[in-house]
Simulated scan of single mutants.
Amino acid sequence: MKAWLCENPVGVEALRWTELPTPQPGPGQVLVAIEAASLNFPDLLIVQNKYQMKPPLPFVPGSEFAGVVQALGEGVTHLKVGQRVACLAGTGGFGTHTLAPAAMCIPLPEGFPAVDAAAFIMIYATSWHALMDRAQLKAGETVLVLGAAGGVGTSAIQIAKAAGARVIAAASTDDKCALCRELGADETINYSVHAPGGSLREEIKRLTGGKGPDVVYDPVGGEFAEPVFRSIAWRGRYVVIGFASGPIPSLPLNLPLLKGASIVGVFWGDFAKREPKANAEMMQTLAQMYLKGQIKPAIDQTLPMSELMKAYEVMGSRAIKGKLVLVN
């Protein structure tokens, strides 16, 4: 097998595309021949030693992948050789083969392509948990999605629309705003025109008739957080997904007090561990939504697995619309 090996997490440039022995699965594991693996923001942080999970060295990055089960470890009974699965294991995806925890492998139904499956679990699980569970989104409410043309942003648009919400999507270019409208957004805001320090609040006010959004979905953080929170509706829910812009914002706590609003944290990974039954039910719901055509990953482009460096470069340029997927 071949894989991208991280021996020293000092950055992308330290990764090596190298030949490795094909491993045999131990108890509770399966060997997966990888068909596709998606690039997520944590895949960048983990090779920079900036992610909360720090795997033992050396390791193969690549948190999310889809492929075919080639061998079963002891005790694995719910999967079989030849079965197609998707998995979000945290590492191992950027190669031709990997060992995966069998309990984390989701069998794929017929008609679920590998490219979509590899780009599915993290973004849709995060957005469903955020909007439907943590924010308790109701039909008829207005959702403002920040970073709306990214992976989680595009999934949030689709899930909010499927729930009957009105969606305002905020992104950084006209092209990204156009993608958001194609995915179902009712209105868009171009950050480059309506900057946080300028007319962003006025545009939110205009698009919501002065009421403000009921739910804010924020994977961006940084300078957007405070002006957007100041614009939130009475009893609004500000859903904290992550900090793709870098800085972690500090919000004045008088703001939630004055608006009767909530700051709601979202950590889907821990939810899945602490509430496995609820997570499994959620994943079944999402798979059915996909098969019904209600949700589908927005794929920016696919690249050969051997071109991971180029994929990281594209991610770093913030030019990706939706998801980038590597294929074998």
Rank of each mutant, 00 (worst) to 15 (best):
E110Q: 14
C87L: 02
P56S: 14
A71P: 12
A170T: 08
K50F: 11
G82L: 13
L44N: 01
E74N: 12
Y51N: 03
P42D: 01
T126C: 04
V69Q: 04
A156I: 03
G75S: 06
A130D: 12
D116V: 02
H97D: 13
G140H: 07
C87T: 00
Y51E: 03
T96Y: 04
E64W: 02
A86S: 15
T96L: 12
E74W: 05
G95P: 05
I46W: 00
S155H: 12
Y124D: 10
G92L: 00
T77A: 15
G67S: 03
P113H: 10
A89T: 05
V143P: 04
A178Y: 02
P107I: 08
P56E: 15
G95N: 01
G95T: 02
V167E: 04
A156V: 07
A163M: 08
G62E: 00
M132Y: 13
S127W: 05
F94P: 13
C180K: 09
A118G: 11
R134G: 10
L57V: 03
A163H: 14
G67Q: 01
A117L: 06
A71K: 03
W128Y: 15
P107Y: 11
A156G: 06
V60P: 01
Y124K: 13
A171W: 03
I106V: 13
A86Q: 11
K54D: 12
A156F: 08
T154F: 10
S155Q: 08
Q52G: 14
I123G: 03
D175P: 11
A103Q: 02
L88H: 07
K50L: 14
K50V: 06
V143A: 03
P55D: 04
Q70H: 10
G82M: 10
G90H: 00
R134T: 12
G147Q: 10
A89K: 02
P109G: 15
A169D: 03
H78M: 04
V81M: 05
V145W: 09
I123S: 08
D133K: 04
K54Q: 14
